[in-house]
Design a binder for these strands. Structure first.
Length: 462
RNA sequence: GGCGACAUCGCCAAGUGGUAAGGCAAGGGUCUGCAAAAUCCUCAUCCCCGGUUCAAAUCCGGGUGUCGCCUCCA
């Protein structure tokens, strides 16, 4: 298995620290709002990473933090004239609700920053004692010059950083690139006591404390969006290195950004979408397909057309399932060994730095096998079960039965059948004007009739 | 200004040395009273120029274009 490692800038062979076990950490949300569609990408992608490792038989420990104290949360609280706790709690709940809708399995651990304040203070204190951090007027900064190789992950060097004029001049800092470990509280801000006075921890410390506490000194995979490489992950790395010279993680994975109609998503461009809002209009599984149809490291463009395309493409899987009546064979003991080759192709794709786009192509090949009349029923069924198995690895096909059945109440069903019979009578009398009117009118209210050799069937239109 | 990524059919998107996966759309056939659905078939030489090689979308150099990071940000 190969994973692209931001640290080495190439695909590295993946070797877990402990054979058969994987410890991974992905940066979670700052809970000050509903998460947007761009945020959904890493959440969803690392869900797939974890599912795939489990499919391969690894024991996976997955940690995703929740940043529940931060400037943005405080800002939002002020705006709503409430306290930061209430904001954090509200959007933490929303976060979990939305994950559930997206069929993203919760992490094994979701530590919150506010639950680890004393550990963070300990860590900062250790860094101060070791000479890697210094207090200045109630703030504590990490000294980037105190360790060698600062900037290794992001490919930056300190001279260039200093040359960049965009780092605000902060006279408190010894080096403009030094970052905040502890932030002195202003009047009225939430705060915790510390050896440096009342304040709150800087963002870059929580991940170090929580990941090491739960997963150990060095863990296997640390992930997040590309924008986190610098400064966030660089700064995490620096702290861990300063503590004991050990790397924080062996593999650094970063997903590419999402653009909207070719532009960066921003509130000012009026192209800002929360995942929650999009899920009102589109099946969450369509969103999953959309993301997985492109390699995770590439930038991806979000727009309405592409979502509709994803929706149509995804529908092929269900159409294939429907044609084979998969619900009735799910618990049958059907040998799917015949499609072992497809499974291998799927794994090969996934083993190559999680090439989900290629993996989806393997799934579409199975759709062909399911529908091919050259194949025996048994072979079609085996292909369907293989498709089902692979799809689940990517997080598809939840509530399969519900999706494949028309859900209307019994009276409505009888009414529809009644209409179908009336139409049939009209057809037999060659009163096509009337039969077409019935079909048309039913279609108008969302019920689609299809004449098949087996008779007329009906479907609820999307 | 510094660092980096990308450029493949109308659209989306795999493919990193051996002669272009897949999806959407489109065109054509079958089926149908007509539809729909289904089904079968068709559909690219890889931004430009130069180089390396028996062989390049794939490697190297030079262009052009798009994007990201350098500041809170998935």
């Amino acid at each position: 298995m190969k994973i692209y490692n931001t640290m080495t800038r190439k695909k590295d062979d993946f070797i877990p620290i402990t054979e058969g076990e994987i410890n991974m950490y992905a940066c979670g949300p700052t809970v000050y709002n509903y998460f947007h569609i761009g945020n959904a990408r890493p959440f969803l992608f690392f869900d797939v990473v974890r599912r795939y490792f489990k499919y391969l038989g690894y024991k996976v420990s997955y940690v995703q933090n929740i940043t529940d104290i931060d400037d943005k949360i405080i800002e939002q609280a002020i705006k709503e004239k409430t306290n930061f706790n209430e904001i954090a709690e509200r959007y933490t709940k929303a976060f979990f609700d939305d994950l559930k809708l997206l069929n993203i399995n919760y992490a094994d651990f979701n530590p919150k920053a506010t639950e680890y304040i004393s550990e963070m203070i300990d860590l900062i204190n250790t860094l101060v004692v070791k000479g890697n951090a210094y207090e200045s007027n109630g703030d504590v900064y990490f000294s980037v010059e105190s360790i060698p190789n600062y900037g290794k992950l992001s490919g930056k060097n300190l001279n260039e950083l200093q040359a960049g004029a965009r780092i605000e001049a902060n006279t408190q800092k010894k080096n403009p690139a030094d970052f905040t470990l502890w932030k002195k509280a202003k009047d009225g801000e939430p705060s915790w006591d510390s050896p440096w006075g009342a304040g709150r921890p800087g963002w870059h410390t929580e991940c170090v404390v929580m990941s090491r506490k739960i997963l150990g000194q060095t863990f296997d995979i640390h992930g997040g969006g590309v924008d986190l490489i610098f400064p966030h992950h660089e700064n995490e790395l620096a702290q861990a290195y300063a503590l004991d010279g050990e790397p924080l993680a062996n593999y650094w994975m970063h997903n590419g950004f999402l653009n909207v109609d070719g532009n960066k998503m921003s509130k000012s461009l009026n192209n800002f979408f929360t995942t929650r809002d999009i899920m009102k209009d589109y099946d969450p599984e369509v969103i999953r397909f959309f993301f997985l149809s492109k390699h995770y490291r590439s930038p991806i463009d979000f727009n309405e057309e592409i979502i509709i395309e994803s929706k149509k493409a995804l529908a092929n899987f269900y159409s294939a399932f429907s044609s084979i009546d998969i619900i009735n064979i799910l618990d049958q003991d059907i040998d799917i060994y015949e499609f072992n080759e497809a499974v291998q192709a799927f794994k090969e794709a996934m083993n190559d730095d999680f090439n989900t786009a290629k993996a989806l192509a393997v799934m579409f090949d199975l759709v062909k096998e399911i529908k091919s009349k050259q194949n025996s029923l048994k072979k079609q069924q085996a292909a369907a079960l293989t498709l089902y198995e692979l799809g689940q690895v990517l997080g598809f096909f939840v509530d399969l039965e519900d999706r494949l059945t028309n859900s209307v109440d019994q009276h409505a069903e009888k009414l529809i059948e009644l209409m179908i019979n009336y139409r049939l009578e009209a057809k037999q009398e060659k009163n096509y004007a009337f039969s077409d009117r019935i079909r048309h009118d039913l279609s108008e209210i969302g019920i689609e009739l299809q004449d098949t050799p087996q008779g007329t069937i009906w479907k609820i239109k999307e």
